[in-house]
Amino acid sequence: MFAHLSALVGGLLTSALGGWGFFIGPLVIWLMKKDEMPFVADQAKEALNFNITVSAIFLLLLIFTILTIGIGALLTIPVALVVGIGALVLVILAAIKANEGVAYRYPLTIRLVK
């Protein structure tokens, strides 16, 4: 559960820097527990992959906005809001499921960390 919720804390703590700390908490938990607790490691890895994917989406939206000299913001701001709210909902669902002992798999996630 903490692996999923630590992404929110990391994002809030780095919000002054653009909120790019979403993946730090799950990464730390995965690195610390990957050999000791298989379920915790699995969920931390899942949270890490999801937050890397969400961060990549936000980066692509930012690049698109910059390349269009801000005009693309008419498209990217609503998309970013939808992605952000969706990510928040999915993280909360994942934390609840992990707390119940059920392995949660985020939809539409690129699984970079195997």
Rank of each mutant, 00 (worst) to 15 (best):
A3W: 07
V79S: 10
G11H: 05
G18W: 06
G11P: 07
V91Y: 04
G72A: 09
L112K: 04
G72I: 00
G84P: 00
T14R: 10
V40W: 10
I29C: 08
V102F: 10
P107N: 09
D35F: 05
M32K: 14
L74V: 11
Y106P: 06
K97Q: 13
V89H: 10
V89A: 13
F22T: 14
I57K: 12
H4Y: 06
A3P: 04
K34A: 08
F22I: 13
H4A: 11
Q43I: 01
I63W: 13
A47M: 02
E46R: 08
E46C: 00
G84T: 06
A41E: 06
I110L: 14
L93I: 12
L75E: 07
G86M: 02
L108S: 12
K34M: 08
V102D: 13
A47T: 03
F50P: 02
K34H: 13
A7K: 04
V83Y: 03
F2V: 08
M1R: 03
L12K: 05
W20L: 15
L93F: 14
G10E: 07
A95D: 09
V82F: 13
L27F: 09
K45C: 09
A94G: 08
I57S: 10
Q43C: 00
V89E: 06
I66Y: 11
L17G: 12
L48Y: 03
I96N: 13
A3Q: 08
N51S: 08
V82S: 03
L59A: 15
F58S: 08
A98M: 04
Y104N: 03
G18H: 08
L81N: 09
V54D: 02
G10C: 07
A47P: 07
V89I: 15
L17N: 11
K45L: 07
L13Y: 08
T14P: 11
G11L: 04
A56N: 13
P26Q: 12
A94H: 02
P26D: 02
F2R: 11
V82K: 12
